[in-house]
Design a protein around this nucleic acid. Structure first.
Lengths: 188, 188
DNA sequence: GAACCAAACTAACAGTCGTTAGTTTTGCAG
DNA sequence: CTGCAAAACTAACGACTGTTAGTTTGGTTC
């Protein structure tokens, strides 16, 4: 990807984060980049493509991280720790894109929407598998797995809301404490 | 509020939930209600007013619930249980409006935005107070209170994502299990 | 049945939307 | 220098935006 295209996508991500996909116009975006709206089309094919790059890019990082956690062949609790770390690291590294994904994936269209939903469902399915293994093994509380998935994923998915308020925090300390609180709720 | 106005707001909430505030036009909304766009203005003063009714309506319910929990003078853990119940009940009762609030409050303008932020900050401040009391009393883990607030509020605020997938669940059972998992993470 | 009013309508406003066509500028390779 | 291609520009398209003004409809009250 060319530098200019990457710059357009980065500026777009910042705008979409603040105002939402529908509310960001191509003219606004062009002004942010320092060109006229029509010139954007020398670098991208449509407004939709910008959203695809942002959302599917982050989604892919999660898919990769989940594959790595599963291939580690650690026990379920250790795999869940890896997944918590994955969410924390990706959120710290791409706070803006993470927020754009969570709040704007519903504006994807056609095949991109299908791809996003598929990867998201696969991710949840993989986590479900790990949690069920933990229950079978006795290391995780014997409860409705959906409740356990939800109580893990929900704080992890919305870390981007919380991180910017905790300026100057120690990332390692945060990782330890959050892991402790989240695992405290689900371990037996 | 007249029946017709309430109907308009309900239809609007359903549309905004699915498509987002910016993407819902007055002509779309009018079609949903069964009239022309201009006729909507016999019942409401602006598109913005619709969003205000939905968002500030739910926000007020949370404020009232928090006041009730605090006036109970129970111990901190019991108050937190009341707050968990409050979120579950409001989400079950107003799933659509809850989702609209979480995803569209940023489109509020002027005084409505100020009012929303104020009530939201006050809510978090009250919860912070309860949690600090629990830490001082020894019933809650001695950790960064912001982390504890976040790990409680984050699953509670996004229950609307999860509820529609759990068709036919037992609300009482859910309340018990979710309370158990969330408190399990923060109790000492 | 006349008067009234709420609630619907049609028509239009000035502005913005994403995108395309066609043209000019810019900067580098020969 | 010349030539070429990438990347900027202007102008415009048809569609859609929230909202207003003015008019007609339909039902209720004297």
């Amino acid at each position: 990807m060319s530098d200019r295209k990457q710059e357009i996508i980065d500026v777009a991500a910042a705008l979409i984060r603040k105002r939402g996909y529908t509310a960001v116009s191509m003219r606004m975006l062009a002004k942010g980049v320092g060109m006229k709206a029509a010139s954007l089309y020398n670098h991208i094919s449509s407004k939709q493509e910008i959203l695809e790059e942002i959302v599917l890019g982050i989604a892919q990082r999660f898919t990769d991280g989940m594959v790595a956690a599963q291939q580690s062949n650690d026990d379920p609790i250790a795999q869940i720790k890896q997944i918590i770390a994955l969410h924390i690291e990706l959120t710290l590294e791409s706070t803006t894109n993470m927020e754009v994904m969570q709040n704007n994936w519903m504006y994807l269209e056609g095949q991109s929407m299908a791809d996003y939903k598929k990867s998201r469902n696969a991710y949840e399915e993989d986590l479900r598998h790990i949690i069920k293994a933990g229950i079978a093994q006795g290391s995780i509380r014997d409860m409705n797995p959906e409740l356990l998935i939800y109580s893990l994923l929900s704080p992890l998915r919305y870390l981007y809301i919380w991180f910017p308020r905790q300026e100057g925090m120690d990332a390692e300390r945060l990782k330890e404490d959050l892991t402790s609180v989240l695992l405290g709720g689900i371990k037996s």
